[in-house]
Design a binder for these strands. Structure first.
Length: 341
DNA sequence: TTGTGTTTTATTGCCTCC
DNA sequence: GGAGGCAATAAAACACAA
């Protein structure tokens, strides 16, 4: 499109209503923005004159718009919004397929009375908006997962504290008896008391999920170190048999969190070599390979890249913070930071 | 009316793919 | 090298509260 008369749709006048604009030799505005379309690398762009000083209301009656005089005097102005009809058709088209092949672009432009370039720009901006929304949805899902997991974690912590107290009091009782009575009768009592402690251990061990993923060697080592630390803290008697490993519980929770995070974010975060978002679910409809929205649970095949970030971060977070569980607010702050960064 | 925040339309520059 | 995509950004249009 060279400079000259451009066909433009009149806002509020329906898709078929055209406006004719006088476009001077378009000098592009410095930097982004500015009104109208200009030439860029051979692409047609719309150039609009500036500074007529008279504004036409967004919705103007068709009668007004049909008056040639009106156009001549009022129209060459700033950028103009598309009509609701135009937007509706564009939205429908976007729902069908969020990418625009040249034929479809031309056809849409013809139907809407727009420049193909305008259609392309609209799709581009629409994809950007969709991506932003998708990011928000992913964040909400992630936050919900985190909140649920945190509640779960709090319950487990409370159980843990209660059982620890139980173990300590039983141990103390045992030691008292050993000290006061001594001899065979105390040993008998102790033997009677111990199964209860073992039961506690056994029930807790059932609660603790084994890490299902083959953890990295470093993480395993860290896990073992923390396990030992926990045992050290608790070994007040009974040969350390009464250890309830909070860290193991948290490690299990961490794995569950990583799994939750993984399934939540994989719909957005880019994966593999191709960083195009559609590989992680971009697009309103999945039209064959490489395009459109994926359902929430069809990401299994593409989770190599998509899940990496979340899983690693979550594992690192829990591995590094399991012994800080007393300070829950700090943890919350850190996980929030992680989610925002 | 005016100031301010949000949305929409469009440009620019860079990148990737063919 | 051209075409097309995306991120960042500008600026007009719009919404809304004071």
């Amino acid at each position: 499109m060279e400079s000259g008369r451009l066909i433009f749709n009149a806002p509020g006048s329906g898709a078929g209503q055209m406006l004719f604009l006088d476009c001077g030799a378009a000098g592009g505005p410095g930097g982004g923005g500015g009104g109208g379309l200009f030439h860029r690398g051979g692409r047609p762009m719309l150039g609009l004159e500036e500074g007529r000083g008279v504004k036409r209301p967004f919705f103007t009656s068709p009668d007004e718009l049909l008056e040639e005089e009106y156009y001549d005097e009022q129209l060459p102005e700033k950028k103009r919004r598309l009509t609701p009809e135009q937007v509706h058709l564009l939205e429908r088209s976007f729902e069908e397929e969020n990418k625009l092949e040249p034929e479809r672009k031309t056809e849409l432009a013809r139907k809407l009375g727009l420049q193909p370039r305008q259609v392309a720009v609209w799709f581009q901006n629409r994809r950007a908006r969709w991506k932003t929304k998708q990011l928000e949805r992913d964040f909400d899902r992630l936050k919900a997962s985190f909140d649920a997991l945190r509640a779960d974690h709090d319950v487990i912590l409370q159980d843990n504290h209660r059982l620890r107290s139980q173990v300590v009091s039983l141990t103390e009782k045992l030691q008292e008896k050993e000290a006061t009575e001594g001899g065979a009768s105390a040993a008998t009592d102790a033997a009677a008391a111990l199964p209860a402690v073992d039961d506690v251990k056994a029930s807790l061990a059932d609660d603790v999920e084994e890490p299902t993923e083959p953890a990295a060697e470093e993480e395993e080592a860290a896990f073992e170190v923390q396990q030992v630390k926990s045992e050290d803290r608790l070994s007040t008697g009974s040969g350390g048999s009464a250890v309830v490993d909070t860290d193991a519980l948290l490690y299990g929770a961490g794995c569950r969190f990583a799994a939750a995070v993984d399934s939540s974010v994989e719909s957005y975060f880019p994966g593999g070599e191709d960083h195009h978002y559609h590989d992680c679910g971009m697009g309103p409809v999945n039209h064959g390979a490489g395009g459109g929205i994926q359902s929430d649970d069809d990401g299994a095949g593409s989770d190599e890249g998509c899940s990496y970030y979340a899983e690693e971060e979550a594992a690192a977070f829990f591995a590094g913070h399991t012994h800080h569980h007393a300070d829950d607010d700090e943890d919350a702050g850190q996980i929030s930071w992680w989610m925002w960064n």
